[in-house]
Design a protein around this nucleic acid. Structure first.
Lengths: 345, 345
DNA sequence: CTGTTAGCGCGTTCAG
DNA sequence: CTGAACGCGCTAACAG
């Protein structure tokens, strides 16, 4: 493996000249630069990443801390992909740190080893000890999600309130007044999982604000649980005409339960999946109308947000909230009026 | 940030003693060891990863080269997760290198920078130039998938032939003789994408071997394409009673097309999804019977396979082929005999 | 515009 | 069992 010293010798210059030719941190005479380039080419020189990092005190590596990449839909996958690609564009590598939210100290210790210049946190909870630990250790970070206090901590997130507002506007505009919301599991709500908490809060507030009765339910992330909660919802409000789900797996159960009861979509009940991965709508029949997460955009923004802290020269990236994007399907229609249609048992 | 020198000073020993206490490469008197440990604790010492790598010439980092993590189902996500966790267990970090298969030289150059000790290749093609480039550069690697020549190159893979054999055995045992296979897209077949090529070959051979007529079709990865190919298949063989799909997105289209024709599953047509992600079966109604990819197991094995090359002391991991695992659903039944049932138009 | 050189923090010989 | 010292390959003063 050729070193910078080899290049310098072959090119007939000093090592610092080679170093500066590579970094461009100081002007080099074109003629010299060409000799150096030729030497690098013939030697197949590639700068040693470790030596470079040790000397410069910058690893050019970002760490992505995540609890769970797998799972249906690939929202997380899409996000990870965007993060990796944006990092590469910016000249950084991305390492994966599979830590749970309660392993804040392991994260801190790893960060202290200088392997990464900054960390990206996914799935931030309302009260997230990782944030405190990272701030105490002066580790640059950016989070996807938000803690409870919406202070000026670096973050990007989905605008859950705006997403719910758009969802309700759409449905109410079609005459729906009896609308249910199927959330993530109660465990996730209790754990302070931001999306679950914020969206439920927005649903309650917006429904009440419109003089409507919010029917909100938590639901385990599974089709089976989705079926059960649908049955329970229909029993609770026989007038129900629309269901908003924020639980992809459960949504398949919602479809199944409605089908087994002979309730057509959308003529019997309209269904709207929010905060979904792109494309999941097409997996159902009739195609589910969705508002999908802007995963790729969030990924890019998160990287930019973190990089703007690492390099003050970069234009700072403000905290951004991005609403989900409506992806029309065929699962939403006007509210059923029940005129002449058989009552459900 | 405390360094090893600080620890040595506080503990009243030399730096090399601290180093050996950490690595355990040479015996240290218990008393001394304790003083060192105490010093490390009070200083919150964490060894600098870059300095360590530079001196030891080992980065303790593995690189995962992937073309596409996103996509429905999360097979890739499950795999990535397993790789990251196994790496961590083994004391390695995992970096993501988002390169396409045709960027072999970029991969080589990155590897030469010494950022990673070895690379993992996903989605290997039958003729994969990355393998040649990596071997020429003496970069340790392990691949998920196989090249055309099944030589002793380090790899782990799904046993597509065995998977198809089990699938056919199951269906034929239930009386099915008119069986179709829905593959990935023709682009992927033409590109030499291993799973598509090997499984199709196995289908043809096994069907013919049983004296049956193989009806094999490529299909774009989308529900729409799945619908179209299902219609075409049914027109081609009106006696068809079973469909094997290796295309998750298309499978949703298969279901939709069958439903729209009033063909019940499984009484009209049985459907078996192979090489799926775990859990997708439950997304359909009736639940799809699947044979899901052993993604997590493959991930762990791939890491072990690579590590066994980096550290000759490890027990070598042989190339392994793992068949998919049957996950019973409700989409398979005995073959329809057509006695008394209305003929399709 | 270019060269010299002192570190960056740690691993690992070689002496003791 | 312990310590001193060199080197890993490169960056970034400082000196011309």
């Amino acid at each position: 493996m050729a070193t910078i010293t080899d290049v310098a010798r072959v090119a007939g210059v000093s090592v610092s000249t080679v170093s500066y030719a590579i970094s461009g941190a100081r002007p080099i005479r074109p003629e010299t630069r060409e000799r150096i380039q030729a030497a690098m080419d013939t030697l197949g020189f590639q700068p040693n990443a470790m030596a470079r990092s040790l000397a410069s005190r910058r690893s050019l590596v970002l760490a992505l801390i995540y609890p769970q990449i797998a799972g249906i839909g690939g929202t997380a996958g899409e996000f990870v992909q965007a993060v990796a690609e944006r990092s590469k564009e910016a000249g950084y590598q991305l390492v994966l740190w599979p830590f749970r939210a309660d392993q804040a100290h392991d994260i801190r210790n790893l960060a202290r080893q200088g392997m990464a210049d900054g960390v990206l946190l996914m799935e931030v909870c309302l009260d997230d000890e990782r944030i405190d630990v990272l701030e105490a250790a002066h580790v640059p970070y950016a989070m996807i999600g938000r803690t409870r206090d919406v202070t000026q901590r670096p973050s990007v997130d989905i605008d859950f309130a705006a997403t719910m507002a758009k969802a309700l506007e759409h449905l109410v505009g079609l005459g729906h007044t009896h609308i249910a919301f199927v959330n993530h599991s109660s465990e996730q709500v209790d754990a302070g999982y931001g999306p679950a908490v914020r969206t439920a809060a927005a649903f309650d507030e917006l429904m009440t604000g419109r003089g409507l009765v919010p029917l909100s339910r938590t639901c385990d992330d599974s089709p089976v649980a989705g079926r059960a909660v649908t049955a329970e919802i229909l029993a609770t409000d026989p007038e129900l005409t629309a269901i908003i789900t924020m639980n992809e797996l459960a949504t398949f159960g919602v479809y199944a339960e409605l089908a087994s009861r002979g309730l057509a979509i959308p003529s019997g009940v309209s269904v709207l999946g929010i905060v979904t991965s792109p494309g999941v709508g097409t997996l159902s029949y009739p195609p589910l109308t969705t508002m999908h997460s802007p995963g790729a955009e969030l990924g890019r923004l998160a990287v930019d947000c973190l990089l703007s802290q690492l390099d003050p020269a970069r234009t700072p990236v403000p905290n951004q909230l991005i609403p989900c994007v409506l992806e029309p399907g065929m699962s939403i229609g006007p509210a059923r009026t029940d005129q002449g249609s058989p009552k459900r048992p």
